Amino acid sequence: MTKRPLDLDAVEAFIRIVELGSFTLAAEAMRTTQAAVSLKLKRLEERLDCRLVERTPRSVQLSAQGAAFFDHARELLEVHRRALAVFAGARQRLTIGISDHVAGPELPALIARMNAQDPQLLIEIRIGSSGDLLQSYDRRELDTVIVRLHAGRSDGELLTEEKFGWFAAPSWQHRAHESLPLATMAEPCGVRAMAGQLLDAAGVPWTEIFVGGGVAAVAAAVMAGLGVAALAPRMLPFGAIDVGPKLGLPDLPRLPVLLHSRVKDNRSHDALAALSAAFRSVVRG
């Protein structure tokens, strides 16, 4: 007796669970419920007569059979999407602005994942400061922006909150009786303004020793031993240390990541749901 074909929605659920490491985030990316994602995976496992993932309270890991099936599953979905693209019309355009303090080293992989999900969606990315991107969004130059909280605004959907610290290179030493040397982004960076305000309130003298055009440049200055920067841990190479407690620097709050979007169509909305879930995954990780 011929077995029934694989359910492509169930295959996609399996891929999302593995890529995002969470049933909850997979459900968000697929715009459905966690229970529905769990049911899809259960039916796929029953169809294949094997366990694809091992669940624990804190993580989701591939089983041996799941690891063997994973690449084939992604190839199956890609072939399906290419087949549908033959009958699609002109590519739809989605312009996204992402704050440099949010983008991080994971961004290329996240955008590649979005492109693979829907090849007919033309995604354009602009990186900049939260303030500049919000101005472009208000002028309707961007469909969506993913930014840090900006003073004077209370709109936007909260995606996640991210821990920040005062990071320096392992070999860096603060010279007594000297102002704290800071590596920062240029104005109008909100993180730069927050860091300065907190240091001033705590009575910590500081001076900007490096002003970079982006987070990658600031991180490079930190690892070169020029000074200290207020950054999220994922923005720095392995080995950077949080010197805040040692130097008695003020605690940095967890900073929110907000989504502002005006897209209405399902295609763009699905892509943004996947991107939002992916950001939650990397920040949580």
Rank of each mutant, 00 (worst) to 15 (best):
E54D: 09
R55C: 00
R55F: 07
T56G: 06
P57C: 00
P57M: 04
R58Q: 11
R58S: 08
S59I: 03
V60F: 05
V60I: 14
V60H: 02
L62M: 12
L62Q: 02
S63R: 12
A64S: 11
A64P: 06
A64I: 11
G66R: 06
A67V: 03
A68N: 12
F69Q: 10
F69C: 01
F70E: 00
F70R: 00
F70L: 14
D71M: 11
D71A: 14
D71V: 13
A73T: 04
E75W: 04
E75P: 04
L76C: 05
L76W: 11
L77E: 05
E78V: 11
V79S: 02
H80V: 07
A83M: 09
A83Y: 13
A83V: 10
A83T: 15
A83C: 03
L84H: 14
A85M: 09
F87P: 02
A88N: 13
G89A: 12
G89L: 01
G89Y: 05
A90N: 08
A90G: 01
R91P: 10
R91Q: 11
Q92G: 03
Q92F: 03
Q92S: 12
L94W: 12
L94E: 12
T95M: 04
T95L: 10
I96P: 02
I96D: 01
G97L: 09
S99V: 06
A103P: 03
A103F: 09
A103V: 06
A103S: 14
A103E: 05
A103K: 12
P105D: 09
E106L: 04
L107Q: 08
P108T: 11
P108Q: 05
P108Y: 12
A109E: 05
I111G: 00
I111M: 07
I111D: 03
A112N: 09
M114N: 01
M114I: 11
A116N: 15
A116Y: 14
A116V: 08
A116T: 13
Q117R: 15
Q117Y: 12
P119E: 03
P119W: 00
L121F: 02
L121K: 08
L122R: 15
L122W: 15
L122N: 14
L122F: 13
I123T: 07
E124G: 04
I125V: 13
R126M: 10
R126T: 14
S129M: 11
S130D: 01
S130E: 08
S130M: 05
G131K: 14
D132N: 13
D132C: 05
L133P: 00
L133C: 00
L133T: 02
L134F: 07
L134D: 04
Q135G: 01
Q135A: 02
Q135M: 04
S136T: 10
Y137N: 05
D138V: 10
D138G: 00
D138I: 07
R139L: 15
R140K: 13
R140N: 07
E141F: 09
E141Y: 06
E141M: 09
L142N: 07
V145E: 04
V145N: 06
V145M: 02
V145I: 03
V145G: 00
V147S: 01
R148N: 13
R148Y: 02
R148K: 08
R148A: 03
R148Q: 06
H150R: 15
H150I: 15
G152C: 01
G152R: 08
G152Q: 08
S154R: 14
S154M: 08
D155C: 01
D155R: 11
D155V: 02
G156N: 11
G156I: 01
L158E: 13
L159R: 13
T160I: 04
T160W: 14
K163D: 08
